[in-house]
Simulated assay, not measured.
Amino acid sequence: MIESGTGADGGPAGEFRSGFVCFVGRPNTGKSTLTNALVGSKIVITSSRPQTTRTVVRGIVHRPDAQLILVDTPGLHRPRTLLGERLNDLVKTTWAEVDVVAVCFPADEKIGPGDRFLVGELAKVRHTTKIALATKTDLAGPERIAEHLLDIAELGRETSTTWTEIVPVSAVSGDQVGLLADLLVGLMPVGPQLYPDGDLTDAPEEVIAADLVREAALEGLHDELPHSLAVVVDEMELREGRPEDKPLLDIHANVYVERDSQKGIIIGRKAARLKEIGTSARAQLTAFFGVPVHLDLHVKVAKDWQRDPRQLRKLGF
Rank of each mutant, 00 (worst) to 15 (best):
S4M: 13
G14R: 08
G19F: 01
V24K: 06
G25M: 05
R26C: 09
T29Q: 07
G30P: 03
A37G: 04
K42M: 05
V44F: 01
P50N: 08
Q51P: 05
Q51A: 06
D65T: 10
Q67C: 06
L68R: 00
L70Q: 02
V71N: 10
T73M: 12
T73G: 10
G75D: 04
G75H: 04
P79S: 08
R80D: 12
L90E: 10
K92Y: 15
T93C: 11
W95N: 07
E97H: 13
E97T: 15
V98Y: 01
D99H: 10
D99I: 05
V100K: 00
A102Q: 03
G114T: 09
R116T: 13
L118F: 10
V119G: 04
G120P: 05
L122F: 08
R126D: 11
T128D: 06
L139N: 07
G141F: 03
E143P: 07
R144T: 14
A146V: 11
H148W: 02
L149W: 03
D151L: 09
E154Q: 15
R157E: 11
R157Q: 10
S160P: 02
T162H: 13
T164C: 06
T164S: 12
V167E: 01
P168F: 03
A171F: 01
Q176M: 12
Q176E: 13
G178K: 13
L184I: 01
V185P: 00
M188C: 03
V190R: 13
P192R: 12
P192G: 11
L194H: 09
Y195S: 05
G198W: 07
D199K: 12
D199P: 01
D211Q: 11
R214W: 01
A217R: 01
H222D: 15
D223A: 15
H227V: 08
S228N: 15
S228E: 14
V233A: 07
V233E: 04
M236T: 10
E240Y: 07
P243E: 08
V255K: 00
E258I: 08
S261D: 12
K263Y: 09
I266V: 14
G268A: 10
A271P: 09
R273V: 09
E276T: 15
E276G: 14
I277W: 03
T279F: 13
A281W: 04
F289I: 08
V293L: 09
L295E: 03
L297E: 03
H298P: 01
A302Q: 14
Q311G: 08
Q311P: 07
L312A: 11
L315W: 09
